[in-house]
């Protein structure tokens, strides 16, 4: 029982970091119906920027994370303007290729600049346990990670529903051509979506590596991206709260289902996530909370 509770807590911690990256994917998907394969690498870049700001410039940790979010936001806005906007959003192949190119490029660039040896990342949250019950313990890290995700999604909801740019963003994501006709500047709005996504992704990566059991290195987000993609697809690719639900569900599958179901070997947590992704796309392409795509044939 205590092991079960411990695994439940692990599921919460993992799931909420997946949810943060999934939220970033959802933001870009809402804007451009594109899954950004480079999202994980952008987030990894953000974590490195945070580290540089905190260690080399001596900026307090949380301020460093905030500055890194802004820097990555600006960077992603530039990427959108230069690399994404020239292409037809309906034609997927060039866009997939561009984001894969970004993926390779950013990963290699980080490897060149920071090398592949793992670095320890300063803790963002107080260490120690909030609550212990026998061998099961709820770490403060888990508590604050869940809180961070809730606050982030809450703030994003406020931003999208209560501000003018949020309104423009929702209009563009619901119908690009009509919003162009009513005078919304579509380009900058999409750019805003990319910037927002990169910022949230950066936060996600920072929180992910702030776990004292993890270290930062350029390939850290490879696995996370796949978990996040399954989480986003499970929750519905255009739903923010869905991303949270999907993230927790994927975390639960990784920490609960895989250890308890005898025929799935432990190493296959990643495979389980991919299978979930495939099943979701097969059975319910809109995910749990997403809007089904309707098209006129």
């Amino acid at each position: 029982m205590q092991l079960f509770v411990q695994r439940l807590f692990d599921a919460l911690a993992n799931g909420s970091t997946y949810a943060l990256v999934a939220v970033a994917l959802v933001l870009i998907f809402k804007a451009t119906t594109l899954v950004n394969f480079a999202q994980g690498e952008l987030a990894m870049l953000g974590a490195f920027v945070t580290l540089v700001l905190a260690y080399e410039q001596g900026i307090p940790m949380w301020l460093a994370v905030f500055l890194a979010m802004i820097i990555l936001g600006v960077f992603a806005a530039g990427v959108e303007r230069v690399l994404i906007r020239p292409f037809d959003p309906a034609d997927h192949l060039p866009l997939v290729i561009i984001t894969l190119g970004l993926f390779l490029g950013i990963n290699a660039m980080a490897g060149i600049v920071w090398r592949f040896d793992p670095r320890s990342f300063p803790e963002l949250f107080p260490s120690g346990n909030a609550f212990t019950w026998g061998s099961a313990s709820l770490r403060w890290y888990t508590v604050f990670t869940v809180l961070t995700v809730l606050v982030t999604i809450g703030l994003l909801q406020l931003l999208l529903n209560k501000t003018k740019i949020g309104l423009a963003f929702r209009a563009v994501s619901s119908n690009l051509e009509s919003s162009e006709l009513v005078g919304i500047r579509v380009g900058p709005t999409l750019q805003f979506g990319w910037a927002l996504a990169a910022a949230v992704g950066t936060l996600g990566a920072a929180v992910y590596v702030a776990d004292p059991f993890r270290q930062l290195e350029p390939s850290i987000m490879l696995r996370v991206l796949i978990f996040a993609v399954s989480a986003a697809a499970l929750g519905g690719l255009d739903s923010l709260w869905g991303a949270l639900a999907g993230g927790i569900a994927i975390g639960a599958i990784q920490s609960l289902v895989v250890p308890y179901v005898p025929f799935i070997p432990n190493e296959l947590g990643l495979a389980a996530a991919v299978v979930v992704l495939m099943l979701v796309l097969l059975v319910r392409p809109a995910g749990l909370f997403g809007t089904p795509a309707v098209s006129r044939v």
Binding site: L83, I97, G101, F103, L104, G105, N107, A108, G111, I112
Partner: peptide, 13 residues
Amino acid sequence: GPTGSLILGLLLI
């Protein structure tokens, strides 16, 4: 470092 991957990524774009 992984200069080759960087070149491949740039080539792709």
